[in-house]
């Protein structure tokens, strides 16, 4: 807890709620939890674009919506193109006088499926064009909405309905690809560090051009853990090194606390096993005779990632 609540100024965060209580999301869902913080950082003058996901399924039934800003539900592959079009249209209307005042913040709220796999080309293209919007990927490491199928973000060894014996390949690293596209701003965030996330969203809002923020979003039904453990899982992911916190501007990388201290060896990593044992999707590993080898392989992958990012930070 200590490093989470250190210097807390939660009181400064606005009372504004982007998400109205009584959503269709599961108990303990990370999506409305993350969106509430996004809303506090961006404010009501925003336009949200969503692709098929739990965040769409949570909206509720017409004529009610749980989201306080205009929401467009677009097809799975088109988050990048749709948000870019809306942003350009607003620019045009502001230019010709059809609109006046501050430009609404256009942002997407898309899962890892709509970012890593199905939506990837549209997002990569928007990044390359430097279109003016924020892309949020809430990464729950699977297609949880459709029944927990594997995605490009599912970590190795994790059980999903399409990897019943555990995934065999490593996950992609899309935030790193975004860093290497040298976009205006890219950041990774965690629900266990709400002030860090809030700061990153505020920073993204202040920058013109393409911004990418990826929020690690532990999913209870997908990963098979108790609804009360969402934040605990997010915290253990960061403290064990399974999720790294960093940000980058135009290709210049900065590691954030506590990832920096963990990577530099100034603070010991939490035991990876503490993180894995809370999740049913790794239960087959924990019961297996190959448990020690699998955990060692995961740890060496984390070490490789940390060493890579420490080196990348020097560029």
């Amino acid at each position: 807890m200590s490093d989470t609540i250190k210097n807390v100024k939660l009181a400064d965060m606005p009372a504004y709620e982007l998400v109205k209580a009584g959503t269709g999301g599961c108990a303990g869902c990370p999506s409305p939890m993350g969106l509430r913080i996004v809303g506090k950082a961006l404010g009501p003058n925003s336009i949200m674009v969503m692709t098929p996901s739990c965040a769409v399924a949570s909206i509720g039934v017409m004529p009610k919506s749980c989201y306080d800003v205009p929401v467009l539900n677009v097809c799975f592959a088109s988050a990048g193109a749709s948000a870019a079009g809306i942003s350009m249209s607003l620019d045009a209307q502001l230019k010709n006088g059809a609109l006046s005042g501050e430009k609404p913040t256009v942002f997407t709220w898309v899962g890892d499926g709509g970012t890593y796999d199905i939506g990837f080309q549209g997002i990569s293209a928007a990044a390359e064009r430097n279109d003016d919007f924020i892309h949020f990927c809430y990464n729950n490491e699977a297609y949880s909405n459709t029944g927990v199928q594997r995605s490009g973000a599912t970590p190795k060894y994790a059980v999903t309905t399409t990897t019943p014996a555990g995934k065999e390949s490593q996950k992609k690293n899309v935030p790193l690809l975004m860093l290497e596209q040298r976009i205006a701003y890219v950041a990774t965030a965690s629900l266990a560090y709400p002030l860090d996330f809030y700061r990153k969203v505020q920073k993204a809002k202040s920058i013109q051009g393409f911004k990418y923020i990826e929020l690690h979003a532990p999913c209870g039904p997908g990963w098979k853990f108790a609804s009360s453990d969402t934040v605990e899982l997010a915290r253990l992911a960061v403290k064990s090194g399974a999720w790294l916190l960093w940000e980058g501007e135009h290709g210049k990388l900065t590691l954030n606390a506590p990832t920096k201290q963990l990577a530099e060896g100034k603070m010991p990593c939490a035991e990876l096993e503490e993180y894995l044992k809370l999740q049913g999707r790794f239960a087959h590993i924990m019961k297996s005779t190959e448990k020690a080898a699998a955990i060692e392989a995961m740890k060496s992958e984390i070490r490789r990632e940390m060493d890579f990012m420490l080196g990348r930070e020097k560029l």
Partner: peptide, 8 residues
Amino acid sequence: SCATEGAG
């Protein structure tokens, strides 16, 4: 649709 509590 309008933002309303209890949409779900």
